[in-house]
């Protein structure tokens, strides 16, 4: 998936307007980042990227860039 498309999917997870994410944001600045959001992200990665996300590594993510780094080979420029 291209990076821009990943950002659009992430905007759906956060339920924020398209174009809100540019890649430099902290997750807490995008909205509530709690366990329900983490589950939504794991579901998105599974259904859209066929990617398995380690929940413990996800819990350590603080930025959009951290999320991209969590999905090696799945998000490309």
């Amino acid at each position: 998936m291209r990076t821009q498309d990943f950002y659009r999917e992430l905007e759906c997870v956060f339920d924020i307007p398209a174009g809100s994410i540019t890649g430099t944001e902290k997750l807490v600045d995008l909205g509530t980042w709690d366990s329900i959001m983490a589950i939504s992200f794991i579901a998105m990665a599974d259904s859209k990227l066929n990617a398995e996300v380690a929940a413990n590594k996800l819990a350590a993510c603080r930025t959009v860039a951290d999320l991209v780094a969590l999905l090696p080979g799945k998000v490309t420029t």
Binding site: S35, A38, I42, A43, D46, E52, A55, N56, A59
Partner: peptide, 12 residues
């Protein structure tokens, strides 16, 4: 309950 871990386990 660690919800994200349980969800990830289930998908696996």
């Amino acid at each position: 309950m660690n919800g994200p871990e349980i969800f990830a386990f289930t998908l696996r």
